[in-house]
Amino acid sequence: MSLSLIYHFQSSQNQDGDFKPSRYKVVYFFSEQGFLEDSFMREMSKTIPDADHFGLTFLSLDDLKGFALRVAQELNSPEVRLISVQDYNIGLDGARDLASLKNVFSQFGDLVMNENNSRKKGFFGKLFT
């Protein structure tokens, strides 16, 4: 089961002395089985320091990747693809139908491998490398 995460970079804001740093927000996070439950994602985000658990925003791309990897480990997924909403939109520009929409998730973004999952090869996995 592979996972896909679309995120949005929110630039910093400074209004009336109230400074909000830039953050990376989870827009969509799903597998072939469907979208992940909000409550589950909030629980997983608690493993990342300084994450906004309710809004699902993270201070850095590394934090976002850490969150995505944590989810992949929890769901025994071998990998998770992170795509910025800008890249997703570029992919959509060229898509015409369902098939080309699906291709966006193999052509764009960064793939983060779940090393823990690839290590758990099992008996047969150890035979076939």
Partner: peptide, 15 residues
């Protein structure tokens, strides 16, 4: 609102 393009799949699965 999420920053993505607004797209819809029609009854022929065209985007």
């Amino acid at each position: 609102p999420e920053g993505s393009h607004v797209v819809a799949l029609d009854q022929e699965s065209k985007l």
